[in-house]
Simulated assay, not measured.
Amino acid sequence: MASSRSVLNFQSFTSQALSADDVQLIETSVEQFGAPLLMLDCDIIRQQYRALSNALPNVTLHFALKPLPHPAVVRTLLQEGASFDLATSGEVELVAQEGVPAERTIHTHPIKRDADIRDALAYGCHVFVVDNLNELAKFKAYNDQVELLVRLSFRNSEAFADLSKKFGCTPEQALTIIETAKEWNIHIKGLSFHVGSQTMNPQKYVEAINTCRVVMEQAVERGLPALSTLDIGGGFPVNYTKQVMPIDQFCVPINEALSLLPETVQVIAEPGRFIVAQSMMSVASVMGQAERDGQTWYYLDDGVYGSFSGLIFDDAQYPLVTLKQGDECAPSVLAGPTCDSIDVIAENIMLPKLDNGDLIIGRMMGAYTSATATDFNFFKRAQTVVFNEQVANCERMIG
């Protein structure tokens, strides 16, 4: 399974060489906290949030906690005026602990237990998502407390994760749900969709927006209440090892499609990866090494059961660099610490000769890394160190 992952080449990342300040900060952090580490920079979270806000000026951004549910991320975005997208009772608990006003949250998991609904309502979150009649029926007991969004499905084979494979309904099914909700006296607030994680083509959003606009028109034609909200989901792309379209350009056709909606429709979004992917670097150290099949295998103290879990399920391609410099590079393998042979980070990667204790740095490590890490084999997951949470004094904290 490890051999099926794409090959990384160290020399292709020389343009992303670390600055002297980065190197000093990494080395100082490892001296203080040890390795492995995840270094979270809240300034980058602010930068990414502001970039997307500027690119979608008429859209309310609800940060999706799923890729990086860290308290410092919540606090930073709360200071920026962000809203939040929740999917579980654990996420409800996190935002409640950090003082997020409930009116700035939505709960978008299409499939929920009754306890999930009750937990969210107790907190004060009252906007939920459904995509089928079975789910709609769960809200009969709460019809005077909730507003619902009906999620449509738009398949996207090009995305990292085609979320419409698992969730969403057809336009005709959506109209049936809206009609049934009227019979059950349940308020349908609007529609939602998610075109898939790391979507490279903005036309996917345009197509979905246009379809939702038609559904809204058809609902009125059928004598149903006018829909007031459209949730365009997340999926906005970021640079891993390949350049993607700048976000301001990416959103131009999206804004054009949104401008065709009735002025009474409020538009919201659920960005996750775009906000946090760039905000974190991983730092792993070489535990040991061996020569195998003409390559040097370097065994790190972090791997695919830890911070590099996205290599297994997320298809992420993390840029990797080492602090060790050398004129001669040789084909090498970076492996994780566990006793499982699948725990391989990169193969045929060109590296200088490393010593035990040398450091490997992963970039773009903010999304689906610490959030999906495990303690498999009792190797503890990387500690997160937070930088620049306080804008004025750049206070550091341990997460």
Rank of each mutant, 00 (worst) to 15 (best):
G124Q: 08
E93K: 09
V92R: 06
K138Q: 14
E93T: 12
V130A: 07
D116G: 05
V130M: 00
E135A: 15
A115D: 14
L94P: 02
G90F: 03
Y123R: 03
L121N: 06
H126T: 12
I117C: 00
E91S: 05
D114A: 14
L94E: 05
V92N: 00
G99L: 04
D114M: 13
P110N: 09
D116F: 08
L133Y: 12
C125T: 14
D114N: 14
T108Y: 09
Q97N: 11
A115N: 14
A102L: 07
P110I: 06
T108Q: 09
I106N: 03
L136K: 04
E93P: 09
Y123F: 13
L133P: 07
D131V: 03
V92A: 05
V130I: 14
T108E: 11
V95M: 08
P101N: 06
E98D: 13
G124E: 08
G99Y: 10
N132G: 13
L94D: 01
Q97Y: 11
G124Y: 02
E135S: 11
P101I: 12
E93L: 15
A122Y: 05
K112Y: 10
T105D: 04
T105N: 07
R118P: 04
F139G: 01
I111V: 15
H109T: 12
L136G: 01
A122D: 13
A96H: 05
V95Q: 08
H107E: 09
F128K: 02
N132Q: 08
V100D: 01
V127E: 08
A137D: 15
I106K: 02
I111W: 07
G90S: 10
L136W: 07
I111K: 14
I106E: 03
I111T: 12
E135T: 12
L133Q: 02
T105A: 03
A137Q: 13
L136C: 13
G124I: 03
T105R: 02
A96F: 01
A96E: 10
N132P: 10
E98W: 10
V129H: 04
G90R: 00
G90T: 02
T108V: 14
E91M: 09
G90P: 04
L133S: 13
H109Q: 15
D114K: 15
A115C: 15
K138A: 13
A102E: 06
E91I: 07
L121P: 07
V100K: 01
A120L: 12
V130W: 04
N134M: 12
E93R: 12
A96V: 11
L121W: 08
V127G: 00
V92E: 05
V95W: 06
G99C: 02
A102G: 13
E103P: 01
L94Q: 05
A102D: 03
N134T: 12
A120W: 00
R113L: 11
R113D: 15
R118M: 11
D116P: 08
R118Y: 04
L136R: 04
F128Y: 10
I106S: 02
K112C: 00
D114C: 13
P110G: 09
